[in-house]
């Protein structure tokens, strides 16, 4: 299967600070990828590297087999909806569509017109007068109507009310189904992503903590609770992601491919949010350079 994003040791440094470090990804096509992480983790940096708004400081990244923003053909393959859905406040909705038509050879004018009509956006309205949800939908239309293979969205619903949020995601998923897009969607809330994503990347403190198909991650991660136990004494093959203890009880989040036979443990399923929180959890071993003494796990293929 062709990879839609391939990154090797990708890093971006600003002055002395590494906004993204040592990022290695291999994302297959046809997925809706959720990129989760707290604010400042490096999500926007990673997405900007993917669309070519930034150049890497170290490592490399290839999108759909080409260098990001290398030439018009490459730019046509990737659609981008940036944070806060920027639009030209002084230009009307119709002007934005004209912008898309003039600057993109692959522009689908009928699709754009239909979408605007169905959304109920007035073409004569200036973008500065639209609500947040309407601007997000306009930006999404611009991204979809150029008929890309990959659509990248940076926290598209963060500033939207719940109804606008739901409508945006519905529109996005519909377009994904109709045009067979690959999508990368970032958010600092897992709840936005749970329904839509089938591939997950967790980014914390400029590093990728986990990346893989959601189904596989949920199948291989379990919550174990039982009597107080030292996590280091678990059998090999069971990697501890997070641990918490009381006097009498230990609760572990582990990742393992094999079944768990120890009868002392109560095994339960994790929700996606639990999983993400486990990887995002407080790490007392992380120093300021982001060096983490917890295992960084990747999907085994």
């Amino acid at each position: 299967m062709t990879a839609v994003i391939e990154a090797q040791g990708l890093g971006k440094q600003y002055g002395r600070r590494w906004a993204l470090s040592d990022c290695t990804l291999d994302i297959p096509a046809g997925r809706v990828v959720g990129l989760v992480g707290p604010n400042g983790a490096g999500k926007t940096t990673l997405l900007h590297l993917t669309v070519g708004l930034l150049a890497p400081t170290s490592g490399s990244i290839e999108v759909l087999g080409g260098r990001p923003a290398a030439n018009p053909a490459q730019l046509a393959k990737v659609g981008f909806v940036a944070q806060d859905s920027p639009t030209y406040a002084g230009l009307r909705v119709a002007d934005h569509l004209k912008l898309g038509a003039r600057l993109n050879p692959g522009w689908d004018a009928a699709l754009a017109r239909d979408r605007i009509e169905r959304l109920g956006l007035d073409p004569a309205r200036r973008a500065g007068q639209l609500s947040g949800g309407q601007r997000a939908q306009l930006a999404l239309t611009l991204g979809i109507a150029k008929r890309p293979e990959l659509l990248i969205l940076d926290e598209p619903v963060a500033a939207l009310d719940p109804l606008a949020r739901r409508e945006f995601l519905q529109g996005l998923m519909e377009a994904t189904a109709e045009h067979e897009l690959s999508v990368v969607l970032s958010s600092h809330l897992v709840s936005d992503l749970e329904r839509a994503c089938d591939y997950l990347i967790v980014l914390v403190d400029s590093r990728v903590r986990v990346a893989g198909e959601v189904e596989e991650l949920l199948a291989t991660h379990h919550r174990l609770s039982g009597p107080r136990r030292d996590p280091a004494r678990l059998p090999a093959g069971q990697h501890v992601v997070a641990a918490s203890h009381t006097d009498r009880q230990t609760t572990l989040i582990v990742r393992t491919d094999a079944p768990i036979h120890d009868p002392a443990w109560t095994v339960s399923r994790l929700s996606l949010e639990d999983l993400v929180l486990a990887y995002m959890g407080k790490s007392t071993h992380t120093d300021h350079n982001g060096r983490n003494h917890r295992p960084t796990l990747e999907v085994q293929r």
Binding site: Q170, T176, A196, D198
Partner: peptide, 16 residues
């Protein structure tokens, strides 16, 4: 259709 379900529920098309 997959498109209808996905538009209604905002879920991943692969799920449907």
């Amino acid at each position: 259709t997959v498109k209808e379900v996905v538009a209604g529920l905002a879920i991943n098309p692969n799920t449907v």
